[in-house]
């Protein structure tokens, strides 16, 4: 990978003028103490409670968590596609190349979606518009953001479909989403998301709806594209196994907070938070055949009534009275490792 002074130097596909967004020292995205809440009839659901992380060029960050942990909401808040109301962002910043997206005028921010930051979703069938041909949907990016005409943009769409390895792309450019298999549909979503060569790609459970062999293909395609384009990639998942080979860093979320952050292999080898350890123990392993699969007892907290202290304490075997009163901050427990547990050192010792 070449060093990066201007993004998009070496790519033939990019016909655009250099972006006005240029990363400083490779730093693309800074999420800073972000809060998101949902105002519903049942009260205020605190979906995200002070999340901070950075994303650099060429880096892959996996955000791991159960449903309701706030991982998808984080992604949608970065994209700016939350429905507000009911969602509200009471505090925090999302800076892209130094520009705060949250305070940016909506029209300016809209223009970052696609060319700068883009996103793919879990269920490609429902995420693609059923009544438009797939090529048209990909080409729409070039027509609306780049002002290309119909045939030029369709040519680009075909090339992108070829790039994401859709067989017979030229013939299938006019086909509709329902005429493709699940894996092919997700490839089309990916083609659409990378069309304008974004600096950041957010993949929200990109393989959850797919079967295992297709999962691996999609993950390796994402990895390939990310390396080819020096993208910053955020992979949102509940499945550690899927991201292990691809991610550089992992942030584990629980009840709207990051509870542990470390390099992939460190987390695998030695989790630093009881929740992470619980997640790892609940993955079926061949060498434990015949034994009862361990699971984390209890349920994730109701986001309208997050427990005082550490949100994980009702489900934690190590919980002490301090866990019920004091919220553990995310702190560096070893070089390059952060955990939000009062007993992180003990957990790390195993």
């Amino acid at each position: 990978m070449s060093t990066i002074s201007t993004r998009r130097g070496n790519r033939a596909e990019a016909a655009a003028a250099p972006s006005k967004y240029q990363p400083q020292d490779g730093l693309l995205l800074e999420v800073d103490d972000l809060f998101v809440e949902f105002h519903t009839d049942d009260g205020v659901a605190k979906a995200i409670n002070g999340v901070s992380f950075d994303l650099r060029q060429g880096e892959t960050l996996a955000i791991l968590g159960e449903s309701g942990s706030g991982k998808s909401v984080t992604a949608q808040a970065i994209m700016g596609i939350l429905d507000m109301p009911p969602a509200k962002i009471p505090a925090g910043q999302v800076r892209y190349c130094g520009h705060d997206l949250l305070t940016m005028p909506e029209d300016e921010r809209r223009k970052t979606r696609g060319p700068e930051i883009s996103m793919i979703f879990q269920d490609a069938l429902s995420s693609l518009n059923p009544v438009f041909p797939v090529g048209w949907q990909i080409a729409e990016m070039f027509r609306k953001h780049r002002g290309l005409n119909k045939s030029e943009s369709l040519d680009r769409a075909v090339r992108l479909m070829e790039r994401v390895q859709i067989p017979a792309a030229k013939e299938r450019v006019k086909a509709y989403p329902h005429q493709f298999s699940g894996g092919m549909r997700q490839r089309i979503m990916i083609a659409m998301a990378i069309a304008l060569d974004p600096a950041v790609l957010i993949a929200d459970e990109p393989t959850t709806a797919l079967d295992v062999t297709v999962q691996a293909q999609i993950m390796s395609l994402l990895e390939e594209l990310q390396q080819e384009r020096e993208m910053g990639l955020i992979l949102i998942t509940h499945d550690l196994g899927v991201v292990a080979d691809v991610a550089d860093k992992i942030a584990v979320m629980y009840a709207g907070r990051i509870v542990e952050r470390a390099d992939v292999y460190d987390i695998y080898a030695r989790p630093g938070h009881p929740y992470t350890r619980g997640l790892l123990d609940s993955i079926p392993r061949l060498d434990q055949k015949g034994q009862t699969l361990s699971a984390i007892g209890g349920l994730p907290p109701n986001l309208t009534k997050i427990p005082a202290g550490c949100a994980f304490n009702p489900r934690c075997r190590m919980a002490d009275h301090v866990c019920r009163t004091d919220l553990p901050p995310l702190r560096e427990v070893e070089p390059g490792r952060e955990s939000a547990c009062h007993f992180a050192e003990e957990v790390l010792r195993g």
């Binding site: 994209m79 596609i81 809209r110 223009k111 970052t112 979606r113 696609g114 060319p115 883009s118 996103m119 979703f121 269920d123 429902s126 995420s127 693609l128 518009n129 059923p130 729409e140 990016m141 609306k144 953001h145 979503m189 659409m192």
Partner: peptide
């Protein structure tokens, strides 16, 4: 509320489109 409308937003299309 459909997913593809969320996709359209994520594509950076205008609200009217």
């Amino acid at each position: 509320r459909a997913d593809y409308v969320r996709t359209a937003k994520a594509k950076g299309l205008t609200t009217s489109r």
